[in-house]
Design a protein around this nucleic acid. Structure first.
Lengths: 220, 220
DNA sequence: CTCATAATCTAACGATTATTGGAATGTGTC
DNA sequence: GACACATTCCAATAATCGTTAGATTATGAG
């Protein structure tokens, strides 16, 4: 086998990963899976697609070894096949945010001033949360919180905020996060909290971004 | 505009990046471009494809803003539009190496025991090179060396090793690197050096991997 | 065993993509 | 200004991909 054929084989393998992440729906599935294990059903619902289509996309992801499947009773649960997969998603999204003006514009139009964190800010946020100077709330569904969350964050799913709002200490700064910069849950949470007189802000980070920055997650 | 439409737009943008990296030839072009600016001509030759096809692929990469073009006389020189692009390539390739058994097997079959570096090894290699305990040689073409190389490495292009082999101090350990784990130049260099009685080994790192690990490059 | 449910498989379509050949554009040289 | 050269544009083809619908498989409940 000559050099050219050898190289072709190598790049072709990497392109399998590339092809897997070349579809918007598959990227969305990856982001949801970065929040923890989910059934096909749940994934299809999250991505607003038919179960059949979700299954087909998951098959592609599985063939690229980006996800793994596991039978759980009647359901089949999919999960990312490693932390590096979630880091790859963050990397792709970050490159897109950095280079694609269209995306920048869209995000600025949609999410007024998203709070982007750098290494230092992440560190100091964690410190403040540890000391109780701010209350960090995870507004994702509680199952996602359970499969990993930011250190010192408490679970306060968006659906339950209205009922549970009195659990939050008045006068404290509230910091809300959800699945990442594309997720709208934290923004809704902030609006809700501000309507009730809280000082609340959101951050762009989700667990995937946090981990990709090299910081550890907590699990209850 | 509802939530679903908004999300669709966001993921679609990221998928532009995904689509750009979904072709083996485009990945190869990206890797070559990670070595420095190149003309369409040179890129086509490196990837063993027709100039027209190279131009088409470069157009796709340009539309995804992963590369930029610049006219240089009669030629047009392409370059990566940022360090993050080269880091993305490294990330994709690493995920592929990690998850695709086929790729692992191929690489083991082709490159006998590639020397993978971790953070510590990189640090100690640089130290040894600085002290002169080992001689690190960059066997890529000299233009690529010129556009950035490992600290304390000297240029010794593969083509010129035979003539210039006496420049290398006898008795010293030689460490050769080239464009990265897929590149075969360092392996050939090692064979050549060993035939001349040198203790030589190669490392998997190229400049892209070095940089992706957060370490600085040197430029003459 | 039968049924309902979750998921996959198969086949089909329209849309997109890779690749090729031929024509056109832009640049420096004579 | 004519020419050679590097590159891009345009059109056409074959291959691949996304999506949908219908049939099939696997599991747990009754």
């Amino acid at each position: 086998m000559n050099k050219r054929q050898t190289k072709d084989l190598l790049y072709e393998q990497v392109a399998r990963i590339g092809k897997a992440v070349s579809s918007p729906k598959r990227l969305e599935l990856l982001e949801v899976l970065a929040q923890g294990e989910k059934t096909v059903d749940a994934l299809a619902a999250e991505a607003s697609i038919d179960i059949k289509l979700a299954s087909a996309h998951l098959k592609v992801l599985k063939e690229a070894r980006l996800v793994e499947a596991r039978r759980e009773g009647r359901y089949i649960a999919y999960r990312l096949s490693g932390e590096d997969v979630s880091a790859l998603w963050v990397n792709l999204r970050t490159v897109a945010e950095e280079h694609l003006v269209e995306l920048k514009v869209q995000m600025e139009r949609i999410f007024a001033a998203p709070e982007k964190l750098d290494a230092e800010t992440r560190q100091s946020l964690m410190e403040k949360a540890r000391r109780g100077d701010v209350v960090v709330i995870d507004v994702r569904p509680s199952t996602e919180y359970a499969s990993g969350h930011l250190p010192f964050a408490r679970s306060m799913p968006l659906d339950e905020i209205r009922q549970r709002i009195k659990e939050l200490p008045a006068g404290k700064d509230i910091v809300a996060y959800c699945r990442g910069p594309f997720c709208m849950m934290s923004a809704e949470a902030v609006t809700l909290l501000q309507e009730h007189g809280y000082r609340a802000q959101k951050i762009a980070d989700g667990t995937a971004e946090w981990q990709a920055a090299g910081l550890p997650l907590a699990t209850p």
